[in-house]
Design a protein around this nucleic acid. Structure first.
Length: 1099
RNA sequence: GGGCUUGUAGCUCAGGUGGUUAGAGCGCUACACUGAUAAUGUAGAGGUCCGUGGUUCGAGUCCACGCAGGCCCA
C-alpha cells in the first residue's frame, strides 16, 4: 500500500470526493451514532428563511457553527444538530404579494385569506433545495432530513402551549404602545416596513418654538421646539437633560413685542438670538426692530429645572393624571431645538416612556363607547374636543385631493400661538420623515392596542441569568444585550397580518371574559362546548389547520354563555424562533426525554444583528417559563462585507456568489480564510484574493509537505508498523518539532474550548508553515532521501507522519474535507487509527513529557543565530554557498553555551560556517553596552527616571565594571544620590572591535568574513556542484544515474579548487570521474561569479 | 439622537497588567537556494499606531472630547 500521490491538487474536487465518501459511508450519521451514550453537547440551529437565496455570509455563520460541533464530536461528545426553517412573517407575505401583484388591501377581496396563506406556504420553501445544496457543499453538518418547520401544526401547538403558560402566569396583557401608523391605510407599520427603501423622505414642515408659561411667574417661559405643532395640544410635560446647562434670557417676543424671559439650553442661545443685538440697550428697542436685545439673567443645570410646573399651552382637554411639569429625558440633546423637549405621551415612543417613568399622564378623551383615545382619531383627524380645529386632519396630505385647506393645521396652530404670545419662533424646516410605503403619506406615531408579554416583570431575572452566559465577544453580552435588558420594555407580540401563528386568545363580545388555548386537545374540547351552545356546527379534526382563516372561524363559548371571538392578531415571528428549543421537539406533547437532555443549549451562533432578535427571544422565553438560560455559550458573529468594507447587496452587484466561490476555491480554503482572517465577531471584508492566498500559502504548504513525505515514504516503504523509535534515538530537531507539536495541541485545544476559532486556525497555520515546513522539513530534507532505510530515517518519517496526522485532526473542524483526505491518505497505509474518517477520530492529547521548553528555547536560538548570520552575509554580499570559517558568540548567560552547543550542527550547516567560538568576559574583546531597565527604575524612582537613564547611558566602562563586581553603584543626581544594582540595568555585548557584528535583543553574532584560499576553493567546488546538478536535471537524469564530468583546464585557482574537492564533487553529483582536460570542444559554458568554466557531462 | 463596535505598513491582521528600536503575512525590491521546484529561504524599503487634549518620568496601550466606518435601536 502506498501513500497517495497527487499532481496538481484541485481543492474543489477534494471536497466533492470527500462529500461522496461521507454520503456513501454515512460519516455524519456515524459521528452522531458512534457517540451514543456519551455526554451530549447541545447545539441549536437558528432557523433561516428559505424564501431567499443564501449568501456568502451564511457560509461564514455556518462555518462557525460547524466548527464547534465537529470539535466537540472529536472530544467525544454526542452532538445532535437538528436543522430548522423559519417560515412565517412579513418577508414571506411581501414576496407573495409581489409575485401576485397585489397589496394587503386586496387580501380578503381579490384573494381569500385561505388562498393567500396557501400561496405563502408554497413560497416559503422556494429556495430550500438551494439551501440544502449550500449546506452540503460547504460541509455544514446538520440534520436536513428531519428539520423543524415553524408552520407545522405540531410546532405551532407548542407555541400555543407556551403562550398559554405565559397567560396563566399573568404575563400576557393587552395594552397601548406608540407605533408608526398610517392613517390613510388604517394600519400600523412594522419597523421592517419603515425600513423599505424610499420611506424616509425630506419634507418641509412648519415648526414652532412654543412658549410654556412657568407657573407663578409673570412673564417667564420655557421654550420647546417641535416639527409637529399639531401634537402641542397633546402636550403634558417638558423634558430636559439633567446634565445640560440652561439659561434664563431676558428679551422681547418677536411677534407681540412684549418683554419676556425665556429658558433654553445655554448651547442654543446662539441659535435663537443674534449676537449683534447683545449690546443693544433694552430702552432702545422699539416694536418691530429686527435686532432684538437680550441678556442672560440666570443659569441652571437641567436637574435644577426638573419639577418646575407650567401652564397648559392649549387647554382643550384636561390630563388624566399629573402633568405640565419639567421631567428628565435621557435622550435630550442640544443638537437642535432649544434643549427642552415637548412631550406628548400619545404621539411619541420616547415621550411615552419618559412620561411613564416620571408619572406623567397623557391628554386623552373618551370615544362613544367610553374608551380612552388620543386627541387624534384613527383617520388622522382632531377630535371634537379640540374646539377650534375639530375634525381637521393633522396633516394636509390626509385630505382627499382638492379638499385640503390652504392653511394646514400646523400653520393655523402657529398663528394661534403667535397671537397669544405663545410662539417664540415659527419657521419652515426641512427634515427627513417616514412615509407609508403603500400610501406615500406621512406616518403618525400613534397609540395602538396590542398584546404584550410582560417581560419587564422578569427584568431582574433576565439580567441575572444573562451574566451566566459566555458571550463571544463579551461586549455584546454586557453592552448591546445587557443594556437592552436594562432598558427592557414589554414585548409587543401583536402583528396585524395573515401568515403567521395566530394568537390563541378568545374574548367575549363584551370583552369581560377571555380564554387562552394551549393545545389541540383543549381547542377541540372548547369547540365541543361551543357546538352544545349552538355557536358552532362541526367539531374540528385532528388535522385542523391552526392558521388563519380557519381559527378565525372558531367561535367559542364563555363561562357565562357568551360568544367568544379570537383576537385577530398574529404573534411576532420572533416568538416562533425563540421557542424552537421546545417546539422543535413538539415538547411537551412528545419527546420529553430528548428535550430534557438538550436544554439548555451548550452553544449557539448567529449574526450580531440577532442580539435583540433570536438571542433575546430564546433568552426571554427560557427565563420566563423555565427559569433557565436557553444557551450557555454564544458567538455573535459580525457581517460579511465586500473587500472595500461596503455592505454586500444584490442591487449594488458586489455580492459574492457562495456557490461560485465554493466551486472555484473549494470549501476548505473558503472556510479557512473566513475563520483565520478575522475573529468571527469582527466584520469580515471578504476578498477573494485572500482565499487564493490561504489556498496557496497554507494548503499549498501543507500539501507540499505531505507530498514530500509521501514521495520518500513510498520509496522506502515506510508504514509505521514497526513501533515508535524512542525519543532518545531521535534527533534534536525531531524532538523539537514534536515538542512544538504537543504545545500546539494544548494551545489549539484551549482556543477551541474558549470559542476562539481564529486563534486555533492561526496557531495551526503558523505551526505548519513556520515550524514544520520552513524549519523542520527544510533542515531535515537530506535525512529523507539520502542513505539507507535505517532508524534515523525511520525516526524522520515517524516524526513527520505524526505532525501531519495531528494537523489533520486539529484542523478538521475548520477544513473538514481536506483534512479528512489528509488523514485518510496517511492512515490508509499505517492503519494506526481505526477511524474511517478524521471526524470519527479522537482529538489528540498533549503528551506533556514530550514538551521540552529548554529545547524549544535552544532551537529558537539556532533560528536567531542563523538569521543574524544570513543578515551579515547579506551585508557583505557573501553568498551562503561560500563557506566561512567561524562565528563568535558572546556568552550571555549560564544556559547559553550549553544551549547553543546542542544545536551547533544545525547552525553550522544552515549558514555554511565551519565553527562556532564562544567569547566571554575574560576574553577582553567584548565591548559592553549598558541600558537602563525602565520598568524597574520607573517604579522605584518615578520622576527622577529621566536623569538616571541619561546617566546610565553614558556610564564609563570602569563604572560598569564596578557595578558588575559589587552589584552596587552610587549615582550622583542633581538632588541626591541613588544606588544602582544590576537589576536596574541591562548589560549586553553589542560590539566586538574588528568584527562584523549583528545583534537582536541580547543575542549578538560576530562573523569572520575573511575568505582563505581553502575556503574560496571549497566555495568554487560547491558552485560547480550546483551547476552540475542543474545540468543533470536539464538532461533529465534520474537521481541514481551515474555521470562522468569533463572540464576544460581553467585558471590555477579553479583547477586547484577542483583537485582539492574532487571527492566531494563526485560524491554530491553521483560522478564516477572528474577529469580536467586541456581542450573540450563540445562542453557547456558555465558562469560562476568571475569564473568561466567549460564542462561536459556524460551519463 | 442613543448603545455597542472598529480605526496600527499599499492590503489583511497581531500587539496580557503603560517601559523608550511597534510586529507578522501578502504585495513590492534585491539577493540566495535549486533532488519539496507551478516550490523555498534571507534581507530591504514601507508607519504623524484616526485626531486633539489630559494623566504619567514614560502612552499604540489609561482618561476625556472629537472625526470616520459598521451594526442595532430611536
Amino acid at each position: 500500500m502506498k501513500y497517495k500521490e497527487y499532481k496538481g491538487l484541485n481543492y474543489a474536487e477534494v471536497a466533492d470526493r470527500m462529500l461522496e465518501y461521507w454520503k456513501e459511508n454515512k460519516i455524519f450519521e456515524k459521528s452522531v451514532d458512534s457517540r451514543e451514550g456519551q455526554e451530549t453537547f447541545t447545539f441549536y440551529e437558528g432557523p433561516p428563511s428559505a424564501n431567499g437565496t443564501p449568501g456568502i455570509h451564511h457560509v461564514m455563520a455556518r462555518a462557525v457553527k460547524d466548527i464547534f460541533c465537529r470539535y466537540k464530536t472529536l472530544k467525544g461528545f454526542q452532538v445532535k444538530r437538528k436543522g430548522g426553517w423559519d417560515t412565517h412573517g412579513l418577508p414571506v407575505e411581501l414576496q407573495v404579494e409581489k409575485e401576485l401583484g397585489i397589496t394587503k388591501e386586496d387580501i380578503g377581496k381579490k384573494i381569500s385569506v385561505e388562498e393567500y396563506n396557501q400561496k405563502c406556504r408554497e413560497t416559503v420553501m422556494k429556495y430550500k433545495d438551494e439551501w440544502d445544496d449550500l449546506t452540503q457543499k460547504m460541509g455544514y453538518w446538520v440534520d436536513l432530513d428531519d428539520p423543524y418547520v415553524t408552520f407545522d401544526r405540531d410546532y405551532m401547538e407548542t407555541l400555543w402551549y407556551l403562550l398559554k403558560k405565559l397567560y396563566d402566569k399573568g404575563m400576557l396583557y393587552k395594552g397601548y404602545t406608540i407605533q408608526p401608523y398610517s392613517p390613510a391605510a388604517g394600519t400600523g407599520l412594522s419597523s421592517h416596513e419603515l425600513n423599505q427603501p424610499g420611506t424616509y423622505r425630506d419634507v418641509k414642515d412648519t415648526t414652532v418654538t412654543a412658549q410654556f408659561k412657568v407657573k407663578g411667574e409673570e412673564s417667564t417661559f420655557l421654550l420647546a421646539w417641535t416639527t409637529t405643532p399639531w401634537t402641542l395640544a397633546g402636550n403634558s410635560a417638558l423634558a430636559v437633560g439633567e446634565k445640560i446647562d440652561y439659561v434664563k434670557v431676558k428679551t422681547y417676543n418677536p411677534y407681540t413685542f412684549k418683554q419676556i424671559e425665556v429658558i433654553l439650553a445655554k448651547d442654543r442661545v446662539g441659535e435663537y438670538f443674534n449676537a449683534k443685538a447683545k449690546d443693544i440697550a433694552f430702552e432702545d428697542y422699539s416694536e418691530g426692530d429686527k435686532l432684538i436685545p437680550y441678556e442672560i439673567v440666570e443659569e441652571y443645570k437641567g436637574a435644577d429645572l426638573v419639577g418646575l410646573e407650567y401652564e397648559q399651552l392649549l387647554p382643550y382637554v384636561a390630563p388624566d393624571g399629573p402633568a405640565f411639569r419639567v421631567i428628565p429625558g435621557d435622550y435630550v440633546s442640544t443638537e437642535d431645538g432649544t434643549g427642552i423637549v415637548h412631550i406628548s405621551p400619545t404621539f411619541g415612543a420616547d415621550d411615552q416612556r419618559v412620561a411613564k417613568q416620571a408619572g406623567i399622564g397623557a391628554i386623552l378623551v373618551k370615544d362613544e363607547e367610553g374608551n380612552s383615545m388620543p386627541i387624534v382619531d384613527k383617520q388622522g383627524r382632531y377630535v371634537k374636543e379640540i374646539a377650534d380645529f375639530a375634525g381637521m386632519y393633522v396633516k394636509n396630505e390626509y385630505y382627499k385631493d382638492g379638499e385640503a385647506p390652504e392653511k394646514s393645521l400646523d400653520v393655523q396652530i402657529a398663528i394661534k400661538l403667535k397671537e397669544e404670545n405663545r410662539a417664540f419662533k415659527v419657521e419652515k424646516y426641512e427634515h427627513s420623515y417616514p412615509h407609508c410605503w403603500r400610501t406615500d403619506k406621512p406616518v403618525l406615531y400613534y397609540p395602538l392596542d396590542s398584546w404584550f408579554i410582560k417581560t419587564t416583570a422578569m427584568k431582574d431575572k433576565l439580567v441575572e441569568l444573562n451574566k451566566t452566559i459566555n458571550w463571544k465577544p463579551e461586549s455584546t453580552g454586557t453592552g448591546r444585550f445587557g443594556n437592552w435588558l436594562e432598558n427592557l420594555v414589554d414585548w409587543n407580540l401583536s402583528r396585524s397580518r395573515f401568515w403567521g401563528t395566530p394568537l390563541p386568545i378568545w374574548v367575549s363580545e363584551d370583552r369581560t371574559e377571555e380564554k387562552c388555548i394551549g393545545s389541540m386537545e383543549e381547542l377541540k374540547a372548547e369547540v365541543e362546548k361551543s357546538i352544545e351552545a349552538g355557536f358552532m356546527s362541526e367539531s374540528i379534526d385532528a388535522d385542523f389547520d391552526l392558521h388563519r382563516p380557519y381559527v378565525d372561524n372558531v367561535i367559542l363559548v364563555s363561562e357565562s354563555g357568551q360568544k367568544m371571538f379570537r383576537e385577530p392578531d398574529l404573534i411576532d415571528v420572533w416568538f416562533d424562533s425563540g421557542a424552537m428549543p421546545y417546539a422543535q421537539w413538539h415538547y411537551p406533547f412528545e419527546n420529553k426525554d430528548i428535550f430534557d437532555a438538550n436544554f439548555p443549549a451548550d452553544f449557539i451562533a448567529e449574526g450580531v444583528d440577532q442580539t435583540r432578535g433570536w438571542f433575546f427571544t430564546l433568552h426571554a422565553i427560557a427565563v420566563m417559563l423555565y427559569d433557565n438560560v436557553a444557551f450557555k455559550n454564544v458567538i455573535a458573529n459580525g457581517l460579511v462585507l465586500d473587500k472595500n468594507g461596503n455592505k454586500m447587496s444584490k442591487r449594488l452587484g458586489n455580492a459574492i456568489d457562495p456557490f461560485k466561490t465554493l466551486a472555484e476555491h473549494g470549501p476548505d480554503a473558503t472556510r479557512w480564510y473566513m475563520i483565520s482572517n478575522a475573529n468571527p465577531w469582527d466584520n469580515l471584508k471578504f476578498n477573494i484574493d485572500g482565499v487564493v492566498e490561504v489556498q496557496r500559502r497554507f494548503f499549498g504548504t501543507l500539501q507540499n509537505t505531505y507530498s514530500f513525505f509521501a514521495l520518500y515514504a513510498n520509496l522506502d516503504g515506510f508504514d509505521y508498523k514497526s513501533g515508535d523509535i524512542a525519543a532518545s534515538e531521535r534527533t534534536e530537531s525531531d524532538r523539537w518539532i514534536l515538542s512544538k507539536l504537543n504545545s500546539l495541541i494544548a494551545k489549539v485545544g484551549a482556543a477551541y474550548e474558549d470559542y476562539e476559532p481564529t486563534k486555533a486556525a492561526r496557531l495551526i497555520q503558523d505551526f505548519t508553515i513556520d515550524d514544520l515546513s520552513n524549519w523542520y522539513v527544510r533542515l531535515n530534507r537530506k535525512r529523507f532521501w539520502r542513505g539507507e532505510y535505517n532508524n534515523d530515517k525511520k525516526a524522520a518519517y515517524q516524526t513527520l507522519y505524526t505532525c501531519l496526522l495531528t494537523i489533520a485532526k486539529l484542523g478538521s473542524p475548520i477544513a473538514p474535507f481536506y483534512m479528512d483526505q489528509l488523514f485518510q491518505d496517511l492512515n490508509a497505509v499505517t492503519g494506526l487509527d481505526k477511524s474511517e474518517s478524521v471526524h470519527l477520530a479522537d482529538f489528540p492529547k498533549t503528551d506533556h513529557a514530550i514538551v521540552d521548553v529548554d529545547l524549544e528555547q535552544r532551537m529558537s536560538l539556532a533560528q536567531n543565530v542563523s538569521s543574524l548570520v544570513h543578515s551579515l552575509r547579506k551585508k557583505h554580499k557573501i553568498k551562503v554557498r561560500q563557506p566561512l570559517s567561524k562565528i563568535l558568540l558572546p556568552v550571555i548567560n549560564g544556559q547559553f553555551k550549553r544551549q547553543v552547543c546542542a544545536v551547533e550542527d544545525l547552525i553550522l550547516s544552515e549558514v555554511n560556517i565551519k565553527e562556532i567560538e564562544f567569547v566571554d568576559d575574560e576574553s577582553g574583546v567584548l565591548v559592553k553596552n549598558i541600558k537602563p531597565n525602565f520598568r524597574k527604575l520607573g517604579q522605584e524612582y518615578g520622576p527622577k527616571m529621566k536623569e538616571i537613564a541619561a546617566k546610565i547611558n553614558q556610564l564609563p566602562a570602569e563604572d560598569i565594571a564596578v557595578l558588575e563586581n559589587e552589584n552596587l553603584l552610587k549615582l550622583e543626581l542633581t538632588d541626591g544620590v541613588v544606588e544602582l544594582t544590576l537589576e536596574d540595568v541591562e548589560i549586553n555585548y553589542q560590539d566586538i572591535p574588528g568584527w562584523s557584528v549583528a545583534s537582536e535583543g541580547r543575542l549578538t553574532v560576530a562573523l569572520d568574513i575573511t575568505i582563505s584560499d581553502d575556503l574560496r576553493k571549497e566555495g568554487i567546488a560547491r558552485d560547480l556542484v550546483n551547476r552540475v546538478q542543474n545540468l543533470r536535471k536539464d538532461m533529465g537524469l534520474e537521481v541514481q544515474d551515474k555521470i562522468k564530468i569533463n572540464i576544460e583546464k581553467n585558471t590555477d585557482l579553479v583547477n586547484s579548487a577542483l583537485e582539492a574537492n574532487r571527492e566531494y564533487i563526485c560524491n554530491e553529483t553521483q560522478a564516477l570521474s572528474l577529469d580536467i582536460l586541456d581542450n573540450l570542444s563540445d562542453g557547456n559554458d558555465l558562469e560562476m561569479d568571475e569564473h568561466k568554466l567549460r564542462v561536459k557531462i556524460e551519463a
